[in-house]
Design a protein around this nucleic acid. Sequence first.
DNA 1: CGTGTAAGGAATTCTGACACG
DNA 2: CGTGTAAGGAATTCTGACACG
Lengths: 81, 81
Amino acid sequence: MESKVMSIGVVCELTGLTERQIRYYEERKLVFPERTKGGNRRYSFEDVESIQEIHRKMQEGFNTFELKELKKKQRCTPIFR
Amino acid sequence: MESKVMSIGVVCELTGLTERQIRYYEERKLVFPERTKGGNRRYSFEDVESIQEIHRKMQEGFNTFELKELKKKQRCTPIFR
DNA sequence: CGTGTAAGGAATTCTGACACG
DNA sequence: CGTGTAAGGAATTCTGACACG
């Protein structure tokens, strides 16, 4: 599901992370929720997956910059899979 | 997806219905969203499908009581399909 | 760097009621 | 019966900043 339907509170419940962490990943250009007219964030299930992956990688020692680099590479290599 | 993750505002966007209509279906025991600790409704994609089906049936002339009866029958007949 | 927190405001949602019919 | 609406309050989310390190 790629439709952006969840508020940040639901994402917190699903991931076990804090709002602060989730907003920070966005600040570092790792997640891209949509916004309501009022400015509230809306996430998809794919975003939730992505957020969990980010958190896992960070626990493994990666910082947000490195994760951004990782994403770039992933965007360029699917041809070779 | 049966996880209850959407606020009523998102359901309005997805269905084109008003909050009033969606809450009324719940009042008539046709939809069963979960609640946050604070009391806010949370709907699943299945709920959205259900709500759209309810609205279609009502446009065909059914009232909420008849739809409740229909649901009962549907719960008893899947054996025969 | 990544995250916690208090601050103040704004968007979102809630309930119960009155209205029409 | 099904839906609109104004009312008042409460839950949720937002941003920018200070803090620690």
